[in-house]
């Protein structure tokens, strides 16, 4: 089964870059793409894959490093756990747009793995300790999802 990893986040902003670091860890094993933020550009990288996993930093008030994971419904309405920018689309809109307009090309399964961040303000190209500690678990989850 073909699968793709999409990591989201800016590695210059500490834990915001967790998606980037997961991509770096797995890019030699699986098809992996990194984006700084959610964008429609993600869609044509997903096309043709049976499954995709999206890794992003989240801030839901959980313990830093804690993982939240769920499958994204084609409507994008699985959970309220999607981010966006002031002048671009939210992840929810991106996925929902993909399923609405390119249903036949989109992966059958899209899993979202969110990692609770501790610090996203500091200009520092490394992860905080709690998120760094979680990184191997995230990598293993992604590997398992994409290779089984």
């Amino acid at each position: 089964m073909k699968g793709i990893l999409i990591g989201i986040g800016n590695p210059n902003f500490r834990d915001d870059g967790v998606g980037f670091w997961v991509v770096k860890a797995l890019e030699k094993e699986v098809k992996a793409v990194h984006f700084l933020s959610p964008t429609l550009n993600m869609l044509n990288h997903m096309f043709g894959y049976e499954k995709a996993v999206i890794v992003d930093g989240v801030k839901f008030g959980h313990r830093p490093g804690e993982i939240v994971e769920f499958f994204i419904e084609p409507s994008g309405n699985s959970e309220n756990y999607f981010g966006g920018l002031t002048h671009s689309l939210s992840l929810k809109e991106v996925i929902a747009t993909g399923y609405l307009t390119f249903k036949e090309d989109m992966p059958q399964y899209i899993k979202f793995i969110g990692v609770e961040v501790e610090d996203i303000q500091m200009f520092k190209p490394s992860l905080s300790e709690p998120v760094k500690k979680t990184l191997p678990h995230i990598v293993e989850k992604v590997r398992k999802f994409l290779t089984t």
């Binding site: 986040g9 915001d16 930093g57 999607f82 981010g83 002031t86 002048h87 939210s90 992840l91 929810k92």
Partner: peptide
């Protein structure tokens, strides 16, 4: 088309 600090994400996905 405001572009503020675009490095990180806003939740829950709209303004």
């Amino acid at each position: 088309d405001l572009c503020l600090a675009c490095a990180t994400h806003a939740y829950p996905g709209y303004l």
